[in-house]
Design a protein around this nucleic acid. Structure first.
Lengths: 163, 163
DNA sequence: TCATGTAATGTTATAGTATTACATTACGTT
DNA sequence: AACGTAATGTAATACTATAACATTACATGA
């Protein structure tokens, strides 16, 4: 993972707390169990403000005094994904907080292959189109987000500067 | 990887040969170097008729008497991807032959999370829409295919039967 | 011819990502 | 108290991918 960017700041503590409160509310409504451990992992993901690798999360957990091993973080991430609180980005093997867990919009996520930064969009037409393509083949979509890789504007600029 | 399906047969030898001939032609045109090793890997991918893992390819290479190690197959796959002959499916860590390497259409690939089977479609509108979403954010798309996970009709049926 | 440069491949080791399997704990219900 | 279930702890291992360096093959020009 070890790539980083200074361009995007981590969210302000207040924003983090809002997102956590929203997660609390959602899970309470649904009767799902946002345990302290799961909540702690979610907080780490949210604070990051960008996609983060599972083993980075594991390091953070250890720093925070949790006796942790890979299954700890993978299980928490699995739960958080089921609840729609976290997206997995398969092309980068990373995880990021969902930016609108309250609606059930399925989103599009652009990830930069240079710096790893990600941008989640609400794309009202996209999944409808995908369903239209899928239907005639009897295929049932289960992904709730779609990752597409490319180059973010900052890294494009960096390329130009290098030349 | 080790999942399998009997529903989709591997392509007939004749089809395999056509696809290989097409790859030969494409690379000749472009002046790119489809070496025996790369061609052998491509053939393995094509014969499979479905997504394959890199280490499965490695095993096959060894069976065929190539003294091979991971970099061998990963390097070949990298070349084949650059040439648009093979797609990587990040959600499954697999590789599959592109079904239309001659046009430069960027395609949509449905993958079944149960059986691993994949279906590549030509989707005339899709990447245009994605570009439209990306443009206002200055994001430049580099993926040439989009993987989306779900459940194929056969596995849906299997689920119903199980109940 | 033969030096030299470059692309491709070989080889060893290691890094990075994820899961299996089994033990333990916490806690609610009978 | 006994039991069942969900969650977590722990050790081991499987799976995926890359780094680093050596070697080979072959084209080109001195």
């Amino acid at each position: 993972m070890m790539s980083s960017t200074l361009r995007i700041k981590p969210p302000a503590p207040q924003v983090v707390n809002e997102q956590l409160a929203q997660a609390d509310a959602l899970c309470r409504e649904r009767g799902s169990n946002l345990t302290p451990l799961r909540r702690q992992v979610l907080e780490l993901v949210i604070r990051q403000g960008r996609p983060v690798g599972a083993y980075d999360l594991l390091d953070s957990l250890r720093t925070q005094g949790r006796g942790s091993s890979p299954p700890t973080v993978y299980r928490a991430l699995e739960f958080l994904q089921q609840e729609g609180l976290v997206h997995r980005l398969p092309a980068q093997n990373t995880y990021m907080a969902c930016s609108h867990p309250h609606h059930h919009h399925r989103g599009l996520i652009f990830t930069c292959s240079r710096c790893g930064q990600a941008l989640e969009l609400e794309t009202p037409d996209l999944f409808g189109m995908l369903e239209d393509y899928a239907r005639p083949h009897g295929f049932e979509i289960s992904d709730d987000s779609l990752e597409i890789s490319g180059v973010c504007p900052f890294c494009q600029e960096a390329s130009r500067d290098a030349r």
